[in-house]
Every structure is written in C-alpha cells, then in structure tokens.
Amino acid sequence: MNETAFTASAVIEMRDAGISTLRDSSLIVAENVNWSVAPGEFWVVAGQQQSGKSDFLMTAAGLLLPTQGSCRVFGCETNDFGEAQVAERLRVGFVFAGGKMFSHLTVAENVALPLLYHKDLTDLEMAREVETLLELMELTPFANATSANLAANWRQRAALARALILKPELLLLDNPLGGLGARHRHWLLQFLEQLQRGHEWFEARPLTLVVTTDDLRPWPHAQRKYAVLHEGSFSGLGSWGDVASASHHAVKELLAEPAGAIM
C-alpha cells in the first residue's frame, strides 16, 4: 500500500478494505471498500438488515480488523490499535445497536465507567461530569436503574451518554433509531444535528458523525453524505439530492415505505 495514498486530515480512511463479520472472520460482508471521512462530516451508511452495517461500523472504529487492505482512524492503522494507541481509541465514541449497556451496573455507573477507568478525577469532579451529562440527556430520573429495568428508548439514550462522556471527536452510531418511539426519534435526530453543529457539551466543537440505518427516510439533510452497503459492495451516493434521484434498486428499497405501513 502506498503510504501517500492516505489523506493526512481524514478522520476515517479505508483503502481496499475487506469487512468480515464479528462471529466468523471467514464470512466477508464487503470487499474493496474505499471510503474517507473528513472532520465535521455527517455520514449516513444505509443497508438492508444483515447487509453487514454493524460489522462495517465496528471495522471503521477499529473494533474489527479489515480482512484485507487497510483502515485508518485519525491516521492510525487499526491493525496497530493496542495499548499504546488507547488515546486514539478514546477519540472515537461508539453507540451499539440496542445500547449494549453493562447489565451489572446502573445507568450512572455505566456512564461513569470510562471516566473512572481513564481519567484521574476526584469523586466530586466525576460526579459533576456524570450529573451534567445525565441532565443534558434527560436521564437523571433513571440514574440508579440498571439496564434490565430500562425501556429500550432510554437504554439507547444511556448508551449515547456513555459514548459521549469522554468527549470523543468522532461518534459512530449503529442503527440509532432502531426500535425508538416517535418522541425519542425526534429528540435523537435533533441532538445529533446539534452535535454536528457544535454542542455545549463539546464547548461548541463540531463532531464528526457516522450512523448506519436500514431506513433512509428519517435522515434527509443537505449537509449530510450518504453511502449504501449492498450485496458485498460499498458505494458512496453523495448528497441527499443524489440519494433521492438514485436509480439503484437498493436505495429505492431503503427509501420506500415499509410494506406494513402501507397496509
């Protein structure tokens, strides 16, 4: 691989990357992926269920290694992600589909865990940080609830709080609207837009965002970029205008009203 082929300022950069599944590294979900995310961009990666969106996002975060080619996050090869690259890892926030909260901890403990583990803060400073974020996310009433006792809507929001507590520069969200009620979907879409513009939690610093989805309809925005994962290939679509006029049948399916809704 030619080192100069990489863009120095790219937040994520994949070159001829092969993506495998988490459960079976011999099962390839996408090949020859070439993708670059610049600082401050908001990407929406769409794909049908089982198309490998989660594995794609995990590879982009360095949680899965590419089977071929390379993936760089903040200029650091994910193959080299180890103890010495923890600082780079902490610049990336990841929100899993369904939250994946730690079941033995309460919401407040889940949110506090990364701070406790990585930062040398006093108890008071830590409590203040956690309280502020929980309040910002309207999670204060659920601070002492465990994830098992939390509705899916709030669990997803708590997972987002956990990913934001270390103030990452890049936020990856795996199907964040999946299973959310209308009110929570609206809140999350507004919140993500604020994050991209610059939120008070980040001292108004704009965040780079990548979300995956199996339904493109809630994500129209002139400032966003779109891509689709379909039958083992990754294609960049461009802006929302390009998406709306795309002739790709997979994109049309992702824009279509679900069959159940028509009935």
């Binding site: 975060a61 949680l63 923890v86 902490l90 899993f96 994946k100 730690f102 079941s103 583990y117």
Partner: peptide, 25 residues
Amino acid sequence: IELGTARALGEVEALEALGIDPVHY
C-alpha cells in the same frame, strides 16, 4: 454464565469500544 452472557450480549465489544481491556476489567 456471567461472562458467557456478557459476551453473547456484546458487552465485551462495548468495553473494547470504551478503551477498556476486557481481560483487565
């Protein structure tokens, strides 16, 4: 049972995503 369930529910990947070594934690 605890670790197997945590593994199956993806909590190990969640730890890694937070930069926490699952072997250590």
